[in-house]
């Protein structure tokens, strides 16, 4: 067994990842000692340019006070030595972002089988079927195993990427840059990653997605300003937001089908006029 294989095994059995604070953009100390464990879903929120990507990049390269933030990342409670750090990097973290596409022109099943081969999975055919079934459960519209990867819709592509990452990627940590709110069941996608014992970090501006996390990290001016546990009240808020969202999604389908929107549910006008007052929003009070 090569040192790389050992590192892969070690990475796959990761028990915890700890992020220790560095400095913000002004040089002020960042108070942070956050430990993530398999099955955790943590959202990362903050304005554009606040340092969300830096935080994810620090995790990805297992920063040891040698990135602009000065943060340190501990693996299973200890800093990895240089050799192990670089042998582990690249295998520790799987990444998914809206900018990613499938570029290989192969049928879905053939490509997933190729990925399974790389992982030397024993029961390849079953795993391929599982990945495709999981992706179809996440995607709004079903797709067939024989369709070409490049012909999948945006939602189907994202669903397949998440299912494949959950079931076939060796990486114990998954970094996701936003999951668009169309053509994919986001709650189910995160549940799938949790069921595979991944540590999942999601960078997002979307309130529903943010509330789907167990915790969320608030980034401002290059450092972590707060770590919020998602409360029972917030989970309840999410349920309301999801209902509003479902209506908007239904409207979207309707517009897609060439429909007109001349009549809205009565509750909508009540809601709209309530929102149109000069009263501050309840969450600003």
């Amino acid at each position: 067994m090569t040192p790389e294989d050992t590192a892969t095994l070690a990475a796959a059995k990761l028990a915890s990842l700890t992020i220790l604070g560095g400095r913000d953009k002004g040089g002020a100390l960042e108070t942070l000692d956050l430990t993530l464990r398999p099955g955790d879903v943590v959202c990362v929120v903050g304005p554009t340019g606040s340092g969300k990507s830096r935080l994810l990049a620090d995790i990805e390269c297992l920063a040891q006070a040698d990135t602009p933030s000065g943060r340190r990342i501990l693996v299973d409670g200890a800093p990895p030595d240089a050799r192990r750090r670089w042998a582990t990097v690249g295998k520790l973290v799987a990444q998914l972002s809206q900018n990613m596409n499938f570029v290989v022109d192969l049928p879905v099943a053939e490509f997933v089988a190729m990925h399974a081969d790389c992982r030397m999975v024993a029961d390849g055919d079953r795993v391929v079927a599982d990945v495709i079934a999981c992706a179809n459960a996440l995607a709004g519209e079903r797709f067939h195993a024989d369709v070409s990867l490049t012909q999948l819709s945006g939602g189907q592509t994202r669903a397949l990427m998440i299912a494949d990452t959950a079931l076939l990627s060796a990486s114990p940590v998954v970094l996701i840059d936003e999951i668009e709110n169309a053509g994919i069941d986001r709650k189910r996608a995160l549940d799938l990653l949790v069921s595979q014992d991944k540590i999942t970090l999601v960078s997002t501006h979307d309130p529903i997605l943010a509330l789907l996390g167990h915790r969320r990290i608030v980034v401002a001016n290059g450092s972590v300003a707060d770590v919020i546990e998602t409360s029972a009240e917030e989970t309840e808020s999410r349920a309301h937001l999801e209902r509003i969202d479902a209506v908007l999604m239904a409207l979207r389908q309707h517009v897609r089908g060439g429909g007109r929107i001349e009549a809205l549910p009565a509750a909508f006008s009540t809601f709209a006029s309530a929102m149109a007052t000069d009263e501050p929003f309840p969450w600003t009070r």
Binding site: Q95, L96, S97, N99, F102, F111, H115, M161, S169
Partner: peptide
């Protein structure tokens, strides 16, 4: 690697 899927990166 930032513009292709995780699966393609691994393959």
């Amino acid at each position: 690697g930032d513009i292709v899927s995780q699966a393609e990166r691994e393959v």
